[in-house]
Design a protein around this nucleic acid. Structure first.
Lengths: 366, 366
DNA sequence: CAAGAAACCGCAATCGATTGCAGGGCCACG
DNA sequence: CGTGGCCCTGCAATCGATTGCGGTTTCTTG
């Protein structure tokens, strides 16, 4: 290790060099060059010594010396420079429709947890379920050179946007899917979710069913609706549907829809309704109660998502549980897989929901 | 515009050049050089023409021509290269303790919304309230060269970590604060929150108060505890405290603590207790009920956070509402402010909580 | 002992955009 | 007609890390 002889004077090089040209005068971190100078070797050697998979290319003594110097100088590799050179940022973009929706939290958490194990980070943006905004954030993420994008914000009208995106960067759809778009997808089996809700009510003896359905341009609602209806059809029954919902999953929205149902079909009310998410189910329940219907005696209600505290409502809400955390993990795994070996056929996974029976549903009173 | 003459052959340059050296053979996007060649001008001219604040430096005709060519080639500036050159990424790091905690959603949303207006994006990571992990993710964010960090995950033991971080990159504490660390902070006034809870109960005539408190190394719990106790002291009263809580804000945890309270002070039970967050309040309520205490008749309960659906519990939960979205926005604003004009004294903002009185609290029965 | 291999390290190009400086063209004014 | 000034563009360095290739040194082997 002849370089060590130079160390003495090389180490004397100071770190006070100012950032050149018109740079913003920010903090000055040690760079590869600084470490190289201080260690008396070439930058390429430092780079190799500090690289997990190239470290074998450099002599052990040299490497240890470099590692020591790097630590002394508090050297931190610049991921920006690294990304530029390698053409890979180790960052993925995550698009969600609404960060305020509690349902998305476990998904995000699943993604985060799967990624950090792989030294990848996530850039999180919100589309607010607007097509324009979705297009814009996609553009922004591509400019940021994210290695991949996972989006939970796909609506039917976004197909062309997503198709374009998928041509530029690995894309994964999460939570919502997109028919005939050949893109990797990780979603819940919402058709099954709808069926579970229906089957539960049928098992309880209900034969007059209704559902308050979410917008049809969101696949998860479309699937729930179809699953519920299919199961009813299988039993030879019709389903009363209120399909006026917007994308606001609020208690008030649920109340509004239930009032609509009461107004339009008050003389022929179903004995059980399936509401496409929990806050809305709560609102629906409230409106029904206000109209003099007791739950579950006069009306059984099934929600969706198994949101926090639904078990402690009055009455505890029967609902469909979705494994959001697992979905997040799998979505991240899928992304990583696509990056590791590109060109494999788009992978699609669906996770089974689970019915959680509580007191908002009861056998049909005779 | 003499360059236009060259356009014909310059535009003939193809985009099929392979990525050089050992690059991963990913998508090939048009670069500045491509646009320059196609437009028959130098890259620097293209850069200027496309830069919002330098566009005036280039002739209008030239600029429009360049813009056209750029659009035709689907040119997208490479933020990575740009970041390297300018020493600024326009990305900030956001550290949260637990992505699964629904309380954090509006905060994240507030940050996102404030940032996207400024063309800045957020890298979101989770510390899981572990000091080790916090240190690691901070390190990772610094390596990513984020322009700033906002963290909601500060615990007392993290002081030295955060101090080091603050020396390297602009830091903002959100939600939780850190005494005698001179760092910009945006938090709720949790002392006031605690006082509000106490005052509400005192106003209802309660004179025997208790609280189930969160861990003392988290400022928000410490503040709540103090505020509650101070208000009681002001009224000449003592407070029974159970301070065995962990950082898991679960229903079960609340149940456990209430059982502890019942076991240790069953013969001398307070008539009202303040629980430091909503899920725990629900658990506490459940345990109390299991022990034969009716709420609010025998026991009034106040929660914290005004979580979703608390208004529809049985009974509807009295709780403290926090403006999480606004907090997020302000935290982001603070960050942006620090970036725009560095060197100003650390700014600190506190937002007022609000008591939401519902049916889980009632006047002391005589 | 000579030739070949292996281990190790340095050179320099490269990723793509930004920007200080300088130079060319053109107009105005003395 | 000459000089000064303005407008616009081009030149080339730079940000910091990575890596193919080539050159030394040392070790192995016939």
């Amino acid at each position: 290790m002849p370089q060590c002889g130079i160390e003495a004077n090389a180490a004397g090089t100071t770190l006070t060099r100012r950032t050149g040209y018109g740079m913003t005068p920010r903090r000055r971190n040690a760079t590869l060059k600084d470490v190289a100078a201080a260690a008396g070797v070439h930058t390429s050697t430092v780079s190799r010594a500090l690289s997990p998979d190239k470290r074998t290319l450099v002599n052990t003594e040299t490497r240890e010396h470099i590692e020591q110097v790097a630590k002394d100088l508090h050297y931190r590799p610049d991921k920006v420079a690294s990304s530029l050179r390698r053409g890979r940022t180790n960052v993925i973009g995550v698009i969600v429709a609404d960060l305020g929706n509690p349902f998305i939290s476990p998904v995000l958490r699943g993604i985060e947890n799967a990624l950090t194990g792989r030294w990848v980070m996530q850039l999180v943006v919100e589309s607010r379920d607007s097509s324009d905004r979705l297009a814009r954030v996609c553009e922004a993420l591509v400019e940021q050179r994210v290695d991949a994008i996972v989006t939970t914000a796909a609506r039917t009208g976004d197909r062309s946007t997503l198709r374009r995106v998928a041509e530029e960067v690995p894309l994964v759809l999460a939570v919502r899917d997109m028919p005939d778009l050949r893109v990797a997808t990780v979603a819940h089996d919402d058709v099954l979710g709808g069926r579970l809700a229906a089957r539960h009510l049928l098992d309880l003896g209900h034969s007059h069913l209704g559902q308050l359905v979410g917008p049809d341009d969101v696949s998860s609602f479309r699937h729930r609706r179809r699953g519920f209806r299919d199961a009813a059809t299988d039993a030879g029954l019709d389903v009363l549907e209120i399909s006026d919902a917007t994308l606001l999953p609020t208690v008030e929205e649920g109340r509004r829809l239930m009032e609509l149902l009461l107004r339009e079909h008050g003389d022929d009310m179903p004995s059980a309704v399936f509401v496409h998410n929990d806050p809305m189910a709560v609102g629906a329940l409230d409106a029904a109660r206000a109209a003099g219907l007791a739950c579950p005696d006069d009306l059984s209600i099934v929600g969706y998502n198994n949101s926090a505290l639904t078990a402690y409502l009055d009455p505890p809400l029967t609902t469909i549980h979705l494994p959001g955390y697992e979905l997040g993990r799998l979505a991240a795994d899928t992304v990583i897989g696509m990056l590791d070996e590109p060109g494999v056929a788009p992978h699609t996974v669906t996770l089974p929901p689970r019915l959680v029976a509580r007191a908002s549903t009861a056998p049909l009173s005779p």
